Computed example of a mutant assay.
Amino acid sequence: MPLYIQLKDVIVENIETGKWVYGDTIPTETELQKQYKISRITVRQAIGELVNSGILTRIQGKGTFVAAPKLESIRPELTSFTRDMNERGFKTKSYVMDFSIENSNERLQRVFQIADTVKVTKIERIRLVSDIPIGIHTTYLNTSITPHLQLDKYILSDESLYSALHNEGVLLGEAHETVEAVLADQQTSGYLDISVGSAVLALTRITRLQDGNVFEYSKMLYRADKYKYTNVLK
């Protein structure tokens, strides 16, 4: 195994076992070089990769520190982002960028199995945890099958969309998700306060009502340095 990977494993183990905790300064490159009798290049490669993955963070002139643990969404069932974070003790809020009724495009017509004359509801939000932008959610709802739905009376900057739907009597059923890694473009980097080209987790979710009709199509982008995604398989 390459030496830099061995050093990465040692550093990660020190963090996972609690030897180093969030905010601690790790040994300097020189100290690590002497301690493990490896080259400066090897040390820099190991630390660089851990910084890029969000495990460590550098502060110019001060050193390298253990970064805050990533926010984790554990999915044994269909839940909202708000509930996921609140159950872990984090305060969430949203900035609603768009809440409108729009014409459906070809993709939405295919997903929802609707005619090109049918309009959909679009909700676009920046999701924040402890006032830090973590994700961008762009959601389309097939509200043609729920004509009495009144989402405009809810404050979605503070409330969960799924809670609002539940209160309106909308019963969600099965959801299918795909997850892939993408690079942040200029718009995404601006919204999430990250550099252009940074790693981003992209989730696509298609959700049905309990009667089988497709109701939700969502695209979600999350900062890979702050967020991780865990599925529970049974």
Rank of each mutant, 00 (worst) to 15 (best):
N213Q: 11
K8M: 12
I134C: 04
T146K: 05
G18K: 08
D131K: 02
V196C: 09
L7Q: 04
S39N: 05
G169M: 02
A181P: 11
A46D: 00
S144K: 08
S94C: 11
L203Y: 12
K37T: 13
K228G: 03
I38V: 05
L201C: 04
E16V: 05
Y229T: 02
E174L: 15
K119M: 09
L172P: 08
E159N: 14
H137M: 12
D98N: 14
F65P: 06
S189F: 01
K19T: 12
G48N: 05
F65T: 01
E77S: 12
E174W: 06
V10L: 12
E177W: 08
K234I: 14
E72A: 05
D225S: 06
D98C: 11
L203R: 14
Q33R: 13
E16I: 07
T146A: 15
V21S: 05
Y191F: 06
K119N: 07
A181L: 15
I155M: 15
V21K: 04
L50Y: 10
T139C: 08
K8A: 06
I5V: 07
I123H: 08
A68F: 04
Q33H: 09
K70S: 04
Y162Q: 13
L151E: 01
F215Q: 02
K70N: 09
G190Y: 02
A184K: 04
Y217E: 07
K93P: 03
D9A: 15
Y140G: 03
S130W: 05
L165M: 05
Q45K: 15
Q186R: 14
A164F: 06
T57V: 09
D225T: 04
L221Y: 04
V182H: 00
G190Q: 10
Y162H: 10
S73H: 14
T139R: 07
E16H: 14
V111F: 00
Q6L: 14
S130K: 02
L171A: 15
I126T: 03
G48Y: 08
T230S: 04
I74S: 07
T25D: 10
Q150P: 00
L156N: 07
D152P: 08
N167I: 09
P2Q: 11
L203E: 13
I194W: 02
F215K: 01
V43N: 03
G173P: 03
V232E: 09
L151H: 03
V96K: 09
S198Y: 01
Y217G: 01
K219P: 06
